[in-house]
Design a protein around this nucleic acid. Sequence first.
DNA 1: AATATCAATGATAATGGTAATCAAAGTCGA
DNA 2: TCGACTTTGATTACCATTATCATTGATATT
Lengths: 144, 144
Amino acid sequence: MKTRKKTLRDYLQLKGLKITNQREIILKTFLDSRSHCSTDDLYIRLRKKHPKIGYATVHRTLKLLVASGIAIEQNFGDGQARYEPVQDNHHHDHLICRECGLIIEFEEPQIEKLQHQVAAAHQFTIESHRHELYGLCSRCSHLK
Amino acid sequence: MKTRKKTLRDYLQLKGLKITNQREIILKTFLDSRSHCSTDDLYIRLRKKHPKIGYATVHRTLKLLVASGIAIEQNFGDGQARYEPVQDNHHHDHLICRECGLIIEFEEPQIEKLQHQVAAAHQFTIESHRHELYGLCSRCSHLK
DNA sequence: AATATCAATGATAATGGTAATCAAAGTCGA
DNA sequence: TCGACTTTGATTACCATTATCATTGATATT
């Protein structure tokens, strides 16, 4: 299986871009971090071992990871983009707790199927979708 | 049936807020506008007949309409909030064309039902949700 | 290995949507 | 009508994101 490091290198080469230490460090740190991290999250984490890497580079590299198909960008309405590694053949959507911020992933093939039926009925070609359920997680709803 | 003007008045009274001309004008103009309008859209529209109303007031009043249950806020990923009147017992989601910006509404009770099953499986209490399908509308996919 | 070319970096400033501030004006109960 | 309190509108502040630009770095060519 092709590593994601290789995927990034191939993408950079294809586009005539350069393989740099920063890009590889950011990729590695991104993959090691918990999912759904924001640019800030990643920047703060990187700063511990690599204080020379600038915020702008982290931001640009995250966009690059999205462009190369390694990551996807999410937005859960708190005003900052979040990124997560793409898992092949493992699409999922999210339950988001408004109280504690907990993010639970879910998969529901039947919903996906119905989505395609809806799109077909409108002669609409789906490129991507987002489906998020907001509310209270089990713990927070008991605390109320 | 209670008009939305009455709904707003009741809400304001309940909260100890004031009924003002601006708020009623903004409500009326909002309801008369095409759906899914942004703060800018509404401000520009208002300026024609009511050039004295400030941007901040439009912004604040839209938030107020959301708080009073008259409108809901949507965000389709273009970096600006959009608002639409709540239609009782008529929840819907959206198909959004990335090319021309067309927004199509859809309803799919089966999806709603499956959502609730997913939430229940995680002991999660749904307060709201968003479900958007992004891609190309019929016209734009033919033009490509 | 040295060089030339072009992209990347990092610090900083610009941008754009949203929200806070505050003096002046308006609302509404007493 | 008066007074307490809210709203308004202009402006500024905020914050995430994006652009700018001089310097540094990567890579192909010699």
